[in-house]
Design a protein around this nucleic acid. Structure first.
Length: 899
RNA sequence: GCCCAGUUGGCGGAAUCGGUAGACGCGCUGGUCUCAAACACCAGUAGGAAACUGUGCCGGUUCGACUCCGGCACUGGGUACCA
């Protein structure tokens, strides 16, 4: 009887569900281990084979840790607020909650088929009021907190008030405005990324190349009153704490760049003939004598004041132009240099010379002071600007050729620079700062590229922000009034007056009187703390009990996509630090170790239609015709060979299709692309499970290559692991019957097993899941060769394979006479004794090139081996009569003869 | 431009500390079984007739380099007028 995976897998999945095999308690005599996946957004398209890749890896690790005697928390849930359900609602009128529920049910069904060991009793959904009650609760905590630079942590806003002079004398409105400047969740007029098509603002992270990440709609800059979170207060800690966590260097580097710490100095320039001061920020104070103009951002507050009457028209034209230029245009032609002279001048603080003030949109209002001292000799942007407008270029650091390009390198000696002459750049920077500080012209300063995170979205399907307005003053709800439940609306669009959809809610007022905030929270709010909720998912008194958080602590292993590196992964670190500051949790980082699984790309197949006909030519012959490549469903193509009958059935229009074949087959072209419905290259895990079984899918996804690598999905290879499963099954059977012997295992059998235990242990601990699958294959091949059916070998083998292929492992374990699930068996220890070799087959090489092999006993000394090798007849042949210069014998490795 | 990762047979990939390059699998070729096919099983499979040559390219260190060092090219990802 062949292995019947359909029946076996169904039975064990039912067993696990019925017995709650993977339910975990918040206490145990065992050590704890927390394995977390980035939870999915349940989209309507369902899972494709790329999605489970990370889940399979984490599941293997979780199952391994259980076998190793750990109390393992391995939960799953849904990031269920978000745009697609809302867009669907706008189009169909279907409530997003209904869509979301349907999609979650479908996801659950797909996940269950793959045999994951999640503790479903801890499932969370961010759109569930019992969950978002606590998201709102954290928002209130953020609103009620400020960042104390002296203690370097967040504190209750009450500790700030005594520090504010004359606070008591202010009106309520003034007090509120002043405090908003310090609160960690605050309302302010902010330049936002406004997306008219989506009708909402977007965070910087949600804008890619000037268009929205979701949908690809144009985004423009707009000044709006907006809720933001003061993540910048945590910039330094977010940067420094990266040192202590085991995340990939690329993610850490991406976060470092995103935070963008740059150390420099501020410097004041007196405006000529006025009391006004223009303050600039520079990282190169050493180049102060190279300043030949100053550039302001078009939005700079002094622009209109400085502009002379003669330049007024030109400047106004330019600022209007700059304002109307969308972010996208600005990015699209970065190389296009635009700017205008204001007519005004500043006085150089050291030389006293008049320096012209220009406006240019290469200077950003939001960074530094919105003004730069332009040093065209040593900054490529200033150089381009100076060249374009024919402004002077002064060389102050020797080493470049300024006729060709600016010399930006931070090395060389200072010239033309008065008191800095002759110094190396590094020393000159120090000296310049000290002189600038001495003269009171400015001081050393650190700038961050990181911006505060805009927190409001003018959308429906998100957490309501728990705020109401009393006389225009924003006030938060009290904690006992939570959750503030998302109200029903008649439509999911903004109102006619442009207010967010929540303004449509009937009779939705705080205490029946005060207007609520109509924005909702962004998609990343719920995911910024979900790892804590899993620890105690049903607690209605606290986001998670103190005991639960103290017990589970950090996530030990977090697996998810690298696309979250500067979004979710930064926010979740921010919220963790904030909750730590308030003493609510004992950890400063969410996850100790992070692994990014690669993307699984699709391999699209193409057929080649001749002209407008219904005739298709095989790939190899297509150059003889005028053809159009058309995507064809990859599920009717096998090894690039098109199933022509299925193709005819695929679509009505191809019913009478004709083919020009090569060697009797229709060969398709192929290309690696993103896996997507429109490209007909989506392979669903359901189909794979149906055809090959969950275990085969799990093994194959791991076998495909290193977890972190992106790779194209190719169904062809799955037959290899499928064959392996059959071989494994046969090892335990003789015909239909289980066939296990109680005889003592032989040396060779023990060696095959223990070699595998050793390798698998090493592989799992190093997340090298692809090589484990190879090692299982080798092991089963060897044991098959040895005709091994000993219980002493096959029982431990079932255990080590269980994390990878849990269904077949359970079945075999059960057939071996065990009554309990294999889940809590004990992972076998490697016994090195079985691996000891007595001899080694030495490769004998000449000048590093292997020529022949000779086995020598390992007890032989180097000298003995050298003697033996030199006397070997093959050696004599390769020596060609010469005397070797040197013979190198590396014990248990190699013999090398140098000629 | 800057940062990160990568480049090994027809394909996915392996080589854990500088020591047999190509494990394992797919595909392909030949064979056994079969009326035939599928499945299964067996053998072969980096290139080359061979000498030899081969881990993106050029150079270096070493008895010995896919692995270390210097330079370059290409691919993928991130990021960008950040002063």
């Amino acid at each position: 009887m062949e292995y019947n995976f359909r029946e076996v897998e169904k039975n064990w999945q039912a067993y696990w569900a019925k017995n709650k095999t993977f339910k975990v308690e918040n206490s145990s005599v065992k050590p704890k281990y927390y394995v977390l996946d980035m939870f999915p957004y349940p989209s309507g398209a369902g899972l494709h084979v790329g999605h489970p890749l990370g889940y399979i890896a984490s599941d293997i690790f979780a199952r391994y840790k259980r076998l190793k005697g750990f109390n393992v928390l391995h939960p799953m849930g849904y990031d269920s607020f978000g745009l697609p359900a809302e867009q669907y609602a706008i189009q169909t009128g279907q409530h997003p909650e209904i869509t979301t529920k349907t999609n979650i049910a479908r996801y659950r069904e797909q996940l269950d088929k793959i045999g994951f060991s999640f503790d479903w009793d801890r499932e969370v959904r961010t759109s569930d009021p019992a969950y978002y009650k606590w998201t709102q609760w954290i928002f209130i905590k953020l609103f009620n907190s400020w960042y104390n630079p002296e203690t370097n942590k967040a504190e209750n806003i009450e500790t700030l008030i005594p520090k504010l002079n004359g606070f008591d004398k202010l009106s309520e409105k003034e007090q509120s405005d002043l405090l908003l400047e310090h609160r960690l969740a605050y309302l302010s007029d902010t330049m936002v990324n406004w997306c008219p098509q989506l009708g909402t603002v977007l965070a910087n992270e949600e804008v890619k190349d000037g268009v929205s990440e979701r949908g690809g709609y144009p985004v423009e800059r707009k000044l709006m009153k907006q809720w933001s979170l003061r993540i910048t207060a945590y910039a330094d800690r977010l940067l420094n704490d990266l040192e202590g966590i085991d995340w990939t260097e690329s993610i850490k580097e991406a976060q470092r760049n995103w935070i963008g710490k740059s150390e420099g100095t501020s410097l004041k320039f007196q405006v000529s003939g006025s009391d006004d001061i223009i303050e600039v920020f520079t990282t190169r104070p050493d180049t102060i004598f190279g300043v030949s103009f100053v550039t302001l951002a078009p939005e700079h507050e002094l622009v209109s004041k400085i502009t002379t009457p003669q330049q007024k028209t030109a400047v106004e034209e330019y600022t209007t132009f700059a304002k109307n230029r969308s972010e996208r245009e600005r990015m699209a032609d970065v190389k296009k240099i635009t700017g205008v002279f204001t007519g005004g001048y500043v006085i150089h603080p050291f030389t006293g010379k008049q320096i012209p003030i220009w406006i240019g949109d290469y200077v950003l209002a939001g960074y530094g002071t919105g003004a730069v001292m332009a040093v065209p000799g040593h900054d490529s942007r200033d150089y381009a600007f100076a060249k374009h407008f024919d402004l002077p270029i002064i060389e102050v650091v020797a080493g470049g050729d300024l006729s060709k390009e600016s010399y930006d390198a931070k090395e060389g000696k200072l010239i033309n620079s008065d008191f800095l002459n002759g110094l190396e750049v590094k020393a000159a920077v120090k000296k310049a700062i000290s002189v600038i500080e001495e003269k009171g012209l400015g001081k050393g300063k650190t700038n961050f590229r990181l911006r505060d995170a805009i927190f409001g979205r003018q959308r429906y399907w998100g957490e309501p922000i728990p705020v109401y307005y009393e006389n225009g003053i924003p006030k938060v709800l009290s904690e006992t009034e939570l959750p503030l439940v998302l109200p029903e609306v008649d439509k999911y669009l903004p109102t006619e007056t442009g207010e967010p959809p929540l303004a449509r809610a009937k009779d939705w007022k705080y205490k029946g009187v005060f207007e609520y905030e109509y924005s909702t929270m962004p998609g990343w709010a719920g995911s910024s703390w979900y790892f804590l909720r899993y620890m105690d998912a049903h607690n209605d008194q606290r986001f998670a009990s103190k005991d639960a958080v103290n017990y589970w602590q950090n996530v030990d292993l977090y697996i998810g996509g690298a696309e979250h590196s500067t979004g979710h992964l930064l926010y979740v670190r921010f919220w963790t630090k904030f909750l730590y500051d308030l003493g609510l949790i004992p950890l400063t980082e969410p996850a100790k170790k992070l692994i990014n699984q690669g993307m699984i790309q699709g391999v699209s197949s193409f057929v080649y239609r001749i002209g407008q006909s219904n005739k298709f030519v095989s790939h190899g012959l297509k150059n003889n015709h005028e053809t159009t490549p058309l995507h064809v469903d990859v599920n009717i193509v096998n090894n690039n060979i098109l199933d022509v009958e299925k193709f005819k059935e695929w679509r009505e229009e191809y019913k009478n299709a004709e083919f020009i074949l090569e060697d009797g087959k229709y060969i398709c072209g192929s290309e690696v692309e993103k896996m997507s419905k429109s490209k007909w290259n989506v392979v669903s895990p359901d189909l794979m499970v149906e055809q090959y079984g969950a275990d085969a899918l799990r093994l194959y996804e791991m076998f495909l290559g290193p977890l972190e690598l992106s790779k194209p999905w190719n169904t062809n290879g799955i037959s290899g692991v499928s064959n392996f499963m059959r071989k494994l099954w046969r090892l335990y059977h003789n015909g239909d019957a289980i066939n296990i012997s109680d005889e003592k295992a032989t040396k060779a059998e023990l060696k095959a097993l223990h070699k595998t235990i050793k390798k698998i242990t090493y592989d799992i601990e190093n997340f090298s899941f692809n090589t484990s699958v190879s090692n299982f294959m080798i092991c089963v091949n060897e044991l098959t060769e040895l005709k091994c059916n000993k219980k002493d070998i096959l029982e431990p083998l079932a255990i080590i394979i269980a994390p990878y292929a849990p269904h077949i492992a359970e079945e075999l374990w059960n057939k071996l006479g065990n009554k309990e699930s294999i889940t809590y068996a004990t992972f076998p220890e490697v016994n090195e004794e079985y691996l000891v070799e007595s001899a080694f087959n030495y490769p004998v090489s000449f000048n590093g090139k292997t020529r022949f092999f000779q086995e020598y006993d390992l007890s032989l000394s180097k000298e003995d081996i050298e003697k033996e090798v030199l006397n070997h007849e093959q050696t004599q042949k390769f020596l060609e009569g010469k005397t070797p210069k040197k013979v190198i014998v590396v014990h248990n490795k190699i013999v090398n003869i140098v000629l």
